[in-house]
């Protein structure tokens, strides 16, 4: 474990807490893409299949459980909770995310580290996480102005993988046989997808103005 990775995990946790705060405090999920939340639930369920087979550390296991439970809880809340469900932007959140799931799964069947059930699902989860934010970014562009908590949620979500890239660079130079091309390249793609959001987020912060993405 290094400082970059720990900072990344904490930033990821913060993004989830901000989202939970937004939904719980405002009893609303307006501006939040249910499709992105569903993709994240699939990402964690597919990636943490080793939760019961490979014990790494208490920290690792606890965080896996937290990520799985929180992502499933958010999807459940957006689908079932009466008040929250009513505020869901159903007509704006129309990205066909099933195509993303299919494409990532086919790609994982082609490109993986080992052709085993667990490794293919791990690669699938890495590819899917890279594109999971797309429905959310599309929704933000369509809904114009973005409320603060939603903006902060997306910001921390993007920042966590950028910190992981620093973690991979650090491990590459400090560990003998460190090769994690699948995660590295996917992480670069994932972070690049946030580039324009980060740009407009920085502008809104600098000008102390409301964050609004050009349509």
């Amino acid at each position: 474990m290094n400082a970059f990775r720990l900072a990344g995990d904490i930033t990821h946790l913060i993004s989830i807490l901000v989202l939970l705060l937004k939904i719980y405090a405002t009893k609303s999920c307006s501006g939040i893409s249910l499709k992105t939340q569903e993709l994240y639930a699939v990402v964690f369920l597919a990636r943490y299949l080793d939760l019961f087979t490979d014990f790494i550390s208490v920290y690792n296991s606890v965080m896996k459980v937290v990520f799985i439970l929180s992502s499933v809880a958010i999807v459940w809340c957006m689908r079932r909770h009466r008040a929250v469900k009513r505020s869901y932007d159903k007509e704006l959140d129309t990205f066909r995310h099933y195509y993303l799931v299919g494409a990532c799964f086919v790609f994982a069947l082609l490109v993986h580290e080992k052709f085993t059930f667990q490794e293919v699902f791990w690669a699938f989860s890495i590819y899917l996480e890279a594109v999971a934010i797309i429905p959310q970014l599309v929704l933000l562009q369509r809904s114009g102005n973005v409320d603060n908590l939603t903006g902060q949620y997306v910001f921390f979500l993007g920042a966590y993988r950028a910190l992981y890239i620093l973690n991979w660079i650090y491990r590459y130079f400090t560990e003998a046989k460190f090769s994690r091309w699948i995660a590295c390249i996917s992480g670069l793609v994932q972070t690049a997808l946030y580039a324009d959001f980060f740009y407009y987020y920085f502008l809104s912060w600098k000008n102390n103005a409301k964050l609004n993405l050009p349509a």
Partner: peptide
């Protein structure tokens, strides 16, 4: 097992 297989990250 998972550690050297590179699956020690979240």
């Amino acid at each position: 097992a998972a550690a050297e297989a590179g699956k020690d990250e979240l």
